[in-house]
Design a protein around this nucleic acid. Structure first.
Length: 227
DNA sequence: AACAAGTCCAACCGCATCAGA
DNA sequence: ATCTGATGCGGTTGGACTTGT
């Protein structure tokens, strides 16, 4: 209740609905000048008639430099599935391990593909490609107007291996044997997806080790990609 | 060609938590 | 210790778009 007071103060005045390119530019300019954060002052400083909450969401989910658009890769899907099996609906936490992807995107992916029965049909996959293509075109136009000075956090590339690090979970590189992977943690509706991805050869391994005596609440992952 | 149904995703909402006064 | 505003998160919705009939 209390938490909403600030947001609702000028609720009648806030614009809602889809963002226009002009609004996007105003927000980009604001962030460029003031940095991320202090969203509640965006309206005053930039002239945007959007709530701070709306501005933050727009920035985080759409305007933020480094965002990937388009279809999730099999690797990314695998990470989502693994982490969801481990963490549940902690979309923002899962998103931290997928640089350039947003919690909203991951949430949408999960709901679309696994919240209901069955796996996506081939037609659905075709549709996804079309949508992804549309987004890529839009994003490329968007990116051209922006000065990308940001560095993706917590990810390094090291001899064809992505090392995931989390400030919260202290995830670090490790060497876990394939036998250590426990497929039973996967939901049943995910199993068919696993078969598909394994067959196409793009997925080369993603192993978990929860036998961590020292830090029982932590987990370690090894992710190998074929670039 | 027209309509219905399904899919996707941007954006909103409400609540929880954090931080500063 | 309490209050208040700011921020973050997860759930939900609306509408554009695609596909099927």
């Amino acid at each position: 209740m209390v938490a909403m007071t600030g947001w609702r103060m000028h609720e009648q005045e806030w614009r809602k609905g889809p963002w226009t390119p002009m609004e996007d530019n105003l927000l980009i300019e604001y962030v460029r000048m003031h940095g991320e954060g202090r969203w509640s002052s965006v309206a005053n400083s930039s002239g945007l008639k959007r709530s701070g909450k709306s501005c933050r969401l727009r920035w985080v989910n759409y305007l933020r430099p480094g965002l990937k658009k388009g279809q999730l890769t099999p690797q990314e899907k695998g990470i989502i599935i693994e982490l969801h099996a481990l963490l549940g609906n902690k979309w923002s936490t899962i998103a931290r391990y997928l640089p350039g992807r947003t919690d909203n995107e991951i949430k949408n992916y999960w709901r679309t593909n696994f919240k209901k029965k069955g796996t996506p049909s081939q037609n659905q996959e075709k549709k996804k490609h079309k949508v992804a293509f549309r987004h890529n075109q839009q994003q490329q136009q968007q990116q051209q107007t922006m000065n990308n000075n940001y560095v993706l956090p917590h990810v390094e590339e090291n001899n064809q291996r992505m090392i995931f690090e989390s400030p919260e979970a202290k995830i670090e590189e490790t060497t876990v044997s394939e036998q250590g992977y426990n497929q039973t943690v996967m939901a049943q509706d995910v199993a068919s997806w696993w078969d598909t991805v394994s067959e196409d050869g793009l997925w080369s391994g993603f192993f978990w080790n929860q036998d961590n005596e020292k830090y029982p609440n932590e987990f370690r992952i090894e992710q190998s990609f074929s670039f």
